[in-house]
């Protein structure tokens, strides 16, 4: 039994080695590289206008300005002596009260918009790819 298995093993090895490998058409490599270049250009086209580093710099600057402006008041206003009190909302006695339902609706709308942006992005990516 053991000898028989060994012989069958050897026979199969010879058969599979004899079958060898098949080659694709001559322009296979060119086709693959053309597709790869297409993918490459799509990736480049997909690069965002503001990179991750860019967003981080913007966020850091925003944080620094907020901190400086709130903690270290310069003691003067760049608006000088302009009297803007006439523009104040209180003058019109507006009493803004946002209902909780509205707040929830707004929150979910925001979530849907964010999700949809991803779907739309993927949809355009697929249509560009094909």
């Amino acid at each position: 039994m053991e000898a028989e298995n060994k012989k069958l093993d050897q026979f199969t090895k010879e058969v599979i080695q004899d079958a060898g490998l098949s080659s694709p058409s001559v322009d296979f490599l060119a086709n693959v590289m053309a597709e790869v270049s297409k993918e490459e250009s799509l990736v480049k086209a997909q690069n965002p206008l503001i990179t991750k580093v860019g967003w981080m710099i913007i966020a850091s600057l925003f944080a620094v300005f907020t901190f400086v402006l709130t903690r270290f008041s310069l003691g003067f206003s760049i608006l000088g002596d302009w009297d803007l009190s006439s523009l104040m909302i209180e003058k019109y006695e507006m009493n803004v009260d946002i209902p909780i339902t509205y707040a929830y609706c707004f929150f979910f709308l925001l979530v849907f918009v964010i999700i949809q942006i991803n779907f739309i992005k993927k949809y355009f990516y697929r249509s560009l790819k094909n």
Partner: peptide, 27 residues
Amino acid sequence: KDMMFTLALRMVGNREDAEEIAQDTFV
């Protein structure tokens, strides 16, 4: 390419499809 094409060919049994599969795989 030859090994990938051979594996695809042995799976699907025809050259055109095997070539397409091998190409898709590389991409």
